[in-house]
């Protein structure tokens, strides 16, 4: 009973037609080539990969929406596509890009409808609505039609809707897409909490920071194949991709003091005179707090940005180390 979700030799190929109507050419796209993984109960798994890598296909198969060409999936003893109606009673799904709420009705009515759909008894249902309203802070807009909500409010409501039947497993497909920092943070805190309370979560996102903060396990998919699976710390060691620190200096005459020159050469930085910009590549081993302190002490700084490595470059990094 250790493996909660197990995926074996999962394959999926799409056939697309290209070209004009009469001279169509058949083309096969291997969305999933041979995917194997398992998720333990209570795990928070981050599923990342570039666009078109096969993330959504995997989620669609795991949620029973799509049938694979071959392979085996068991989730909590069920095969998602064979007993869909039974299976989905125990999963919650959020698609960041597709709403599951009743567009013209207030949020609370979607919750009521879902309670009827899942056959949750009325008393338990009421209690859950109250809990979710409280925890996701929905009170202010729960009686407003969904179409009038902001994206952040809607996404909180979507999360509420996915939990109304108290499923054991949550599939979240880019739930933070397009959200501002505050909304994103709120949702991440909420996810952390429900994971701590025993929900198994599979999350796909583009944002590596989210994965690092939330997930204990990570899967990276590229081009239909898994290129990495393991715990999040292991990934950090595997990919020594430096962060880029960009510092815009306040306008000055262009002469640097001795100290300043030493600092730049010590951290192997370069100065772009035209933009008055200093660029550094900071290895993971160097503390950002430490380097920021030195910079602010020695330079007149106008602007300060840190570029975290993108998922694409991490995937590239993995290919290079393998």
């Amino acid at each position: 009973m250790d493996e909660f979700i197990s995926v074996r030799n999962l394959k999926k190929t799409y056939t697309v037609y290209e070209g004009k109507f009469f001279k169509r050419q058949k083309k096969e796209i291997h969305a999933l080539k041979n995917i194997d993984f398992e998720i333990k109960k209570g795990e928070f798994l981050g599923y990342v990969g570039p666009n078109g890598a096969g993330k959504s296909t995997t989620i669609k198969i795991l949620t029973g929406i799509m049938h694979p060409d071959s392979g085996m999936v068991t989730v909590n003893g069920f095969c998602p596509w064979q007993s869909r109606k039974e299976y989905v009673k125990n999963i919650g799904v959020v698609f960041g890009q597709k709403t599951q709420l009743w567009w013209d009705l207030p949020v609370v009515d979607t919750f009521e409808l879902l309670i009827s759909i899942y056959g949750v008894d009325k008393k338990t249902g009421r209690k859950r609505i109250a809990e979710l309203t409280e925890r996701l802070d929905l009170k202010e807009f729960i009686n407003r039609p969904v179409r009038q909500l902001s994206l952040g409010q809607r996404m909180r409501s979507e999360l509420g809707a996915s939990l109304i039947h108290d499923p054991d497993i949550l599939f979240l497909d880019e739930p933070t897409i397009g959200l501002d920092i505050v909304s994103r943070h709120g949702i991440m805190e909420f996810l952390k909490e429900i994971n701590a309370n025993g929900k198994t979560i599979l999350l796909t996102t583009h944002n590596l920071k989210e994965i690092e903060e939330l997930c204990n396990e990570i899967l990276i998919i590229a081009d239909g194949e898994l290129v990495f699976k393991g715990c999040t710390e292991k990934l950090n060691n595997l990919t020594e991709i430096p962060r880029i620190l960009k510092i815009t200096l306040k306008p000055f005459d262009g002469t640097l003091s001795e100290d300043q020159r030493i600092i730049i050469s010590d951290f192997r930085g370069e100065l772009e005179m035209q933009k008055m910009q200093l660029n550094f590549r900071i290895d993971k081993s160097v503390s950002l707090a430490y380097i920021s302190k030195i910079m602010f002490e020695h330079f007149e700084i106008e602007d300060f940005t840190i570029d975290e490595p993108e998922i694409e470059s991490i995937v590239k990094g993995i290919f290079q180390t393998c």
Binding site: T63, G64, R84, K85, E86, V93, F95, K98, L113, I117
Partner: peptide
């Protein structure tokens, strides 16, 4: 829009879901 997917994550038939 792909929203038809959200009908398939419910424990009722898709036609029934369309009717509601």
């Amino acid at each position: 829009t792909g929203r038809f997917d959200t009908l398939l994550i419910r424990p009722i038939s898709t036609l029934k879901h369309l009717m509601i």
